[in-house]
């Protein structure tokens, strides 16, 4: 019970202090909008919104979650308020779950911003919502834990951002978000299969446009495995470096 109170308070504090602050909320809206606009300008012709929707959703989650952890973890660690949490009578597992749950929820919400916009412009019938939602949730969990992994590997906020981009930008091009994996140079294709977002994007493509190319159970399992591995490694790093 007391662990639950602590968990809930940490989550609520992060929400109030970080996630629901205007700059961060707008981040979730401006990013997908500008991304859509960019694709529109580049192709010179009206884009097929439904075609790019899975990619925009996946990117919104990826950028939203990873940027938040640079604040909720790296920044708090730098200002030493994180020590309070480490010194509280809460297990480290629960503490890190509390610190990441906010980012996961934020990622899920971010994913539905472009969906909301799209719903005003095009017909969204025929989407397999349950699968789409599960896909969104799993992408959010995986990229949050990727953000956690990055956040515990650095000590400055700018390092966290730089290190995140090291993962994020390749993912934008290699994970089949806008360029199908099959049209990538043969040399790069194996790399795509090493990145978790490839599997997440495929779930979204399948559930929205029925044009995924991987079996859904495989994609779900790979995302779960990535999440577990990233969380475990991050926790080990925290135990080693922060409780030094």
């Amino acid at each position: 019970m007391s662990q639950l109170i602590a968990f809930w308070s940490i989550l609520m504090k992060d929400m109030k202090n970080y996630y629901l602050k205007p700059p961060n909320i707008s981040w979730g809206i401006i990013f997908p909008l500008s991304w859509t606009l960019m694709l529109f300008v580049r192709s010179g012709s009206p884009v097929d919104i439904r075609e790019i929707l899975p990619g925009v959703m996946a990117l919104s989650i990826l950028f939203g979650t990873t940027s938040m952890l640079a604040v909720t973890i790296t920044f708090e660690r730098k200002s030493r308020s994180f020590e309070r949490l480490l010194l509280a009578p809460i297990s480290l597992n629960l503490l890190m779950l509390a610190k990441t749950t906010g980012a996961i929820l934020f990622g899920v919400l971010n994913a539905f911003v472009p969906v909301l916009f799209a719903s005003f412009l095009i017909d969204l019938s025929g989407i397999h919502w349950v699968t789409a939602f599960s896909g969104v949730l799993l992408i959010a969990v995986t990229s949050t834990f990727l953000g956690l992994f990055i956040a515990v590997s650095v000590s400055e906020v700018f390092e966290a951002q730089t290190f995140s981009n090291f993962f994020r930008f390749p993912m934008m091009f290699l994970c089949g978000l806008f360029i199908p994996v099959s049209s990538l140079p043969a040399l790069l294709q194996p790399l795509s299969y090493l990145l978790p977002l490839t599997y997440g994007a495929d779930i979204l493509k399948q559930s929205i446009n029925e044009n995924g190319f991987l079996p859904a159970p495989l994609s779900f399992s790979v995302l779960l495995a990535f999440s577990l591995a990233l969380f475990t490694i991050s926790l080990r790093n925290i135990k080693k470096r922060w409780i030094y």
Binding site: S2, I5, A6, S9, K13, N17, S79, S81, P89, I90
Partner: peptide, 18 residues
């Protein structure tokens, strides 16, 4: 926490102890 009030800070710390 720099951005939280003194009161909110104390209430938050209390919650860490359940």
């Amino acid at each position: 926490y720099e951005d939280m009030s003194g009161f909110d800070n104390l209430v938050f710390c209390a919650s860490l102890y359940g």
